[in-house]
């Protein structure tokens, strides 16, 4: 298919820069700000588009790792037990999705959402009726896995310019390639 989203985004950005932005009323601050935000968002999309599938596969792998640890350590009352069982089922399904070479981007994205939901419910339940020792182990696992994921999330958003020390954040391409290797 010749009409590729990358080309469409590039064309939209050019039209906005060359034609629309100069025509926006300089006195309309809201319109000025939003035109520039649309340009920024399009630039961010252009960067994300070729990497999104890889990013989601990478995150799903990490969530499955977290689920594996939680399954081992999360012990508690009825609520924790139910949540762990649900998580185990979702993880089995997600492993199958990830291993199917032809799983499409939407399927992978849904698996990420499902795993986020079930692991989150295990964490929530452990504070309700989990064992004290299990709670410490769960906290440790979530904090460790979150560190790796958040490094990628921050890198994913680097272009927006929020980071006080952007040089300290590796490029997302490098982080994803490191996993693939």
């Amino acid at each position: 298919m010749q009409m590729h989203p990358a080309l469409q985004i590039q064309s939209m950005m050019k039209a906005l820069t060359d034609v629309v932005l100069p025509a926006v009323d300089p006195a309309n601050k809201l319109a000025q700000e939003q035109t520039r935000l649309v340009l920024g968002t399009l630039a961010l999309m252009a960067q994300h588009l070729p990497l999104r599938f890889q990013f989601n596969c990478d995150e799903l792998t990490r969530l499955l790792k977290l689920a594996g640890i939680l399954r081992q350590v999360a012990r508690g009352g009825p609520q924790t037990t139910v949540c762990v069982d649900k998580m185990a089922l979702a993880a089995t399904s997600a492993v199958g999705t990830l291993e199917r070479g032809q799983a499409g981007p939407a399927v992978i994205e849904q698996a990420v959402r499902d795993m986020r939901a079930v692991t989150s419910q295990v964490v929530r339940s452990i504070y309700i009726d989990g064992d004290e020792a299990a709670l410490k182990q769960v906290e440790g696992a979530v904090l460790t896995v979150s560190r790796d994921q958040l490094l990628r999330d921050r890198s994913w958003m680097l272009m927006q310019g929020w980071e006080p020390d952007p040089q300290a954040i590796p490029k997302i391409q490098d982080l994803l390639e490191a996993r693939a290797a």
Binding site: E33, L37, E139, S146, L150, L151, D153, M157
Partner: peptide
Amino acid sequence: QDVLVTWLMGIGYMLLDEMRTLI
């Protein structure tokens, strides 16, 4: 200004990481 609200979502991950470090 939905476009602004969407743009601002990008700060959330830096703050999540700050939260993680603090805990």
